[in-house]
């Protein structure tokens, strides 16, 4: 097994998977006997926040912000991610209110304050720049 090294120099094994196992439990034997399954191979919000801290420490403030937004999206199901992305594309949402409601949903359902702020900020600009106009 290849020993990994983390960005902060610590062994990868200290990390824990979404299924609560050490990363080093992701072995072929465990995959083959089903000990490890899909619930184990996601990334945890805490891991992303930790990477965000590393990025901030390296002077990358905006990258750190993205890690924090990413952390907020870990628990959002794939299909909702697609739907939200679609909604933020030009002309998909038809009004400011639609996006404000979406932001409220993220804040309430997932505690995703940073994602909510991003959506709210889009709502203001889309209205001013007429991006709620129908495209197809």
């Amino acid at each position: 097994m290849n020993e990994g090294r983390r960005s902060d120099g610590k062994p990868a094994g200290e990390f824990v998977t979404t299924g609560g196992r050490p990363v080093d439990d992701l072995t072929l034997a465990n995959v083959l006997d089903g000990t490890v399954d899909e619930s184990d191979v996601g990334i945890r919000p805490a891991v992303l926040r930790h990477q965000g801290t590393i990025a901030r420490g390296a002077g990358r403030d905006r990258l750190a912000d993205n890690f924090e937004r990413g952390a907020e999206l870990v628990d959002v199901p794939d299909e909702e991610i697609f739907a939200t992305y679609e909604k933020l594309r030009p002309g998909r949402a038809r009004s400011r209110a639609e996006l404000i409601e979406l932001a409220r949903y993220y804040r309430q359902t997932y505690g995703a304050h940073r994602i909510a702020e991003l959506i709210e900020s889009a709502a203001d600009v889309y209205e001013r720049r007429r991006l709620f106009q129908k495209r197809f």
Partner: peptide
Amino acid sequence: LLLLRYRVSGDYLQTAAVIRDGQVISAV
């Protein structure tokens, strides 16, 4: 599996990350 472990630990998400000789090499 090596890729998967790095994915779960978020290590190749840092700036300019690649994996060489089993190690993440990045701007960090």
